[in-house]
Nucleic acid binder design. Structure first.
Lengths: 215, 215, 215, 215
DNA sequence: CATGAATGAGAATTCATTCAT
DNA sequence: AATGAATGAATTCTCATTCAT
């Protein structure tokens, strides 16, 4: 599978970027500090110190403190996130997995790994989302792409097979997303390790069977 | 049912408190502004203006800006939230609802209403949670109370009845919580109305049946 | 004559203003420093030190450093300057001076006194004028008022009397202004005392007679 | 007449200088920017951008930002200005113009042209003069040279002829200067075209005859 | 010679907090 | 209790200047 290393998406994009080593250090320091203390409680002095550069250097590339935040979040929202989704869809669509349960488990595992690999960006994104209602709708728009993607047709096949309930795609995704969230949120927010194998198995178990006893 | 008016819990607590009208105005203004712009992006000048009092008055009661945040969040976390849970549990325990589906629907509807009634506090709580990992565990501890409450025993009956899968209580609650969250989060973060009746019905439908076709 | 004390126009306006003593000190300090070193070379720290207040106090009233400049120049351009002109016109119009020479001498003396009394503001105004072309036209508009005032009619009488050349009012004023300027500019810019009596006598002597020998 | 093209004095001095093309571009860019926005409001970044060179290049030749200002003003004050005066004097002294009116008109026309050709430098000079009292006396010293030059003797002839009032030379020059200033200042500060022929004719008309009606 | 990344001192501005009235 | 002027530390941001490449 081509997308096993989401981990390095941000680091790679840094390396490939035309940013100097110091500018990359600024971004990395900002990522850590924003994630830890929040954007507002991080001063540009903090960033400069952590990146071991002068405060002037922080501003050379990014003009404003807000510019740093954008340099972190915008590629994440508009490139990393969509790219991750797209790569995922392509892989999945080519999959020959017979049952939806198997498919779902791989998919969920995959997404969980991605989320944990990008904890810091996600934490920052969550911080901003709780403060700026506009971001919610912005993200929502990106989410719609999933439904309108080949993945949609792929899932619809399972519905025709009778393996999946005949609800609107959005509703189905919503529930899976919500369940996955219960595993991810605590880890993203408070840290700690997640047993992804176990978590994805449990997720599929619940999501597919509900809370009814199996008899 | 005794707990139909969570809405006014905060307002009531304000009225009953020994706070003067101006001090109450400060709290109300802070609630609105913190919720809208976030704590760090709200200045004490903003609060004074919105509350139509002097900046000195803002400090008379609450000593520090942080004190205002605490005045909002601490009673919410330690009193409003638990109290809401407790009242809810008592009511529920006395309930004679036969099936878990009926019980769950009422419970979910109830909780959704509470969340929407307290949107602003929840938004502020979310903001702080994304910044302070400690808050996550603090809230988690409060959540444990639910499991160790009479409600726990109440739910366990359904498991014994064979109406509910035999998983640890925490896991069951986790999934219900996650599903409810998918309905609430967008409204709490971005605003908009929620058809609670429909949402709670759908939630129960999924949570109890999973994504397997009903046929 | 009512307008002998232009000197105190600024000070009076400070006293009458609702500004606190410290805020007045800020304005006074700014006036001195801007005049001495120029706006751009004066820091708000300089102002705070000279006014013996904190830097925060400098911003309490005037919001921005530019706001201080406006607080000094705008009343000067739109109130002090026009008021000085108006008062002057009223006095002059009531004058019963028979010859234009006598009239001119009083007028010139009067204006020179005013300029010296307001050296500092004028210096600041000159600084800004050399940097902002818009200010030139703004001041020009105020100047037009002189021509369209009762003073105009007053002067025209002298033209009808045959005491004054029959040129457009603007041209006449332009030349007087230019000649007065040669006495004032060095004093406003470089300091030093001006013998106003002598200067105004000489001005009239030249302006009325030109450079032709008197014989 | 040798001095018809003061215009190019600065450009020529640039061309003849041993400055590289880029260094010349720096000077030209600085001239424009200082004139437009003032020295303090022009950053070395601005200059580098306008000159299409790197910021390092700006410093290669001129060491400091102040050095650029000096590179513009010092030759202007000590060479361009005096040279212009000298050339002018030589021409004038060789003139055979019989009447002072004719002589004055040519002289004034000549000076006005020079001022307009060097608007930008003059604007910068004015800016600095309003800030630095020392510059006033420095310029004054240069002015004294005119009086102590052959031109002095030349003018004194007109006084002996009875064509010119018997005042100290300085006073006579002061008045002419002031009158010329009323035509030049608005154009130098705010821009716009000047009808030099008309302006110089009017200047002589006033200066020689004063404001007395010609009868 | 030229470049432009990097520097760090200092500038404007904000803001929580105090306190005399 | 309430006011709001005053504070000063901290913060964001600018800019002249340097220097390795």
């Amino acid at each position: 599978m081509a997308n096993k290393n989401f981990t390095t998406l941000f680091s790679e994009s840094l390396d490939q970027s035309d940013l100097s080593a110091k500018q990359q250090a600024v971004l990395r320091a900002s990522l850590e500090l924003f994630s830890q203390k929040g954007f507002d409680r991080t001063s540009t002095r903090d960033i400069a110190d952590r990146a071991a550069v002068s405060e002037g250097t922080v501003y050379k590339q990014f003009k404003t403190k807000d510019g740093i935040l954008k340099a972190i979040l915008e590629p994440f929202i508009h490139q990393v996130l969509p790219k991750a989704v797209t790569e995922f869809i392509v892989d999945m669509s080519q999959s020959t997995t017979p049952t939806i349960d198997e498919f779902l488990e791989i998919a969920v595992k995959n997404r969980m790994q991605f989320a944990l690999d990008n904890r810091q960006q996600l934490r920052i994104l969550l911080q901003e989302i709780t403060r700026d209602a506009n971001l919610v709708s912005l993200i929502s728009k990106e989410a719609v792409n999933i439904i309108n993607s080949p993945l949609g047709n792929f899932i619809r096949k399972y519905q025709e097979d009778g393996q999946l309930v005949d609800w609107p795609l959005q509703r189905i995704i919503q529930y899976i997303f919500g369940t996955v969230l219960t595993y991810l949120l605590p880890k993203v927010l408070a840290g700690g390790e997640l047993d992804i194998d176990k978590a994805s198995k449990e997720t599929v178990e619940f999501v597919m069977g509900g809370l009814k006893p199996t008899k």
